[in-house]
Simulated scan of single mutants.
Amino acid sequence: MSGAAPKIRLQSLDIMRGLAALAVLLFHYSVILPRFAPAARPIPIAFEEGGYGVHLFFIVSGFVILMSLERSTASQFLISRFTRLYPVYWLACLLTFAVLTSSHWIAYSVSAGEFLINLTMMQSFVRVGAVDGVYWSLAYELGFYAFLFTALRLGGARIVSILPHYMVAGAALFSVAAPYIPHPLHLLLMLNQYADLFGCGLALYLLRTRGFSLAQAAILPATPLVEALYDGWHGLIVVGLIVLAMSFACLTRWQPGRLARPLIWLGGISYALYLTHQMLGYALIAHLQELGVGPWVSFAVALGCALLLAHLLTHYWERPVSAWMKRRLTAWAARVRTPLAARAPSG
């Protein structure tokens, strides 16, 4: 890992993030709502495909995390990931826990001990219930970060080209080998049903930065084929369309116009939106309907509030706090390295 890789900023990836977050929100509000708020009526349209927004998030992560690793030293990468993930997560976790413990609108609860473990983001690794159901995907993200970081540290850049194939194979084999892979090794070794999606993102990054390679291009059609092992024809078609959209976003010179600005904005707040929309939205929808508001209006109000909250958290908490933490941790890492370098033998 070094700073030699060229910097890439694709607004099309921001659009993909925004679409993914919106899709997940629509899925939760139109399909999953009755599981947590039995008295609330969802809108009479079930957006089942919205659940695949997480698949899109995982492909985007495969692309951007390899890019980040190639542009960073080890300490820079660890600091950037920590300061990106945790500040808004902590606040989202606190807000959600407060609503769960103080309201009667949601049929779900967590203990104070579970809340404290959730603050580490390690709850899935130690089989503790999540404060918010959407946190399940964070375990796969963290497992991917750990796997890719370790693989590049041990094997160097020469093994990058084989990682997408390993991860697609890992996802395919997991369909039959799952009972034999102890928890949480399936997360840390990328032997799980979502590993192919991260591998697809890696392949797209390699195709973007290294040029065309038949071996990497083959990963793109292989990804929806692996998804078919878990979700049948439906998964194959939806993930196939997602891979096509990501290929267009990553491998073409398309530049979003003015009409795409709302989606770029949505991509900018997507992480906060993903973390906060579900349980808080369910509570708001249930409360509004208890007051006599219909499902469509309660859905629209919850959507607007979710977007507003995500915007506020992103711009007035996540970005300033992350920047402050990054400066402090970077300065601390520099102070630690200086005496170590002075003690290193010369010649």
Score class of each variant (00 low, 15 high):
Ala249Ile: 03
Arg9Asp: 15
Ala5Lys: 13
Ser75Arg: 15
Ser270Arg: 09
Ser322Phe: 05
Gly268Ile: 00
Gln278Gly: 08
Met67Ser: 15
Ala302Asp: 06
Gly294Ser: 07
Leu94Met: 13
Leu303Val: 08
Trp332Asp: 01
Ala98Ile: 06
Ile43Ser: 04
Cys305Val: 12
Pro320Trp: 08
Ala169Leu: 12
Ala310Leu: 01
Thr314Cys: 09
Gly281Gln: 07
Ser2His: 15
Phe248Ala: 14
Arg158Phe: 02
Thr96Cys: 09
Gln11Met: 13
Ala218Cys: 07
Leu173Gly: 10
Pro182Asn: 00
Ala171His: 11
Met121Pro: 02
Phe97Val: 05
Gln216Asp: 09
Met279Asp: 00
Leu163Lys: 08
Phe27Arg: 12
Gly50Trp: 12
Phe58Asp: 11
Thr101Met: 11
Ile32Pro: 04
Leu66His: 06
Pro345Gln: 09
Leu244Pro: 05
Ala203Thr: 08
Leu69Trp: 12
His315Trp: 11
Pro87Gln: 03
Tyr194Pro: 00
Leu154Phe: 13
Pro184Cys: 04
Ala146Gln: 11
Ala260Ser: 15
Asn192Leu: 01
Leu229Ser: 07
Ala21Pro: 06
Ser124Pro: 03
Leu138Gly: 09
Gln123Ser: 10
Leu22Arg: 01
Leu191Met: 13
Tyr166His: 05
Leu340Cys: 04
Ser137Ala: 10
Leu207Tyr: 01
Gly211Pro: 04
Ala20His: 10
Ala169Gly: 08
Pro295Met: 11
Ala272Arg: 10
Leu189Phe: 10
Arg319Gly: 02
Glu227Tyr: 12
Lys326Arg: 15
Ile117Trp: 12
Cys200Val: 01
His104Phe: 11
Leu236Glu: 12
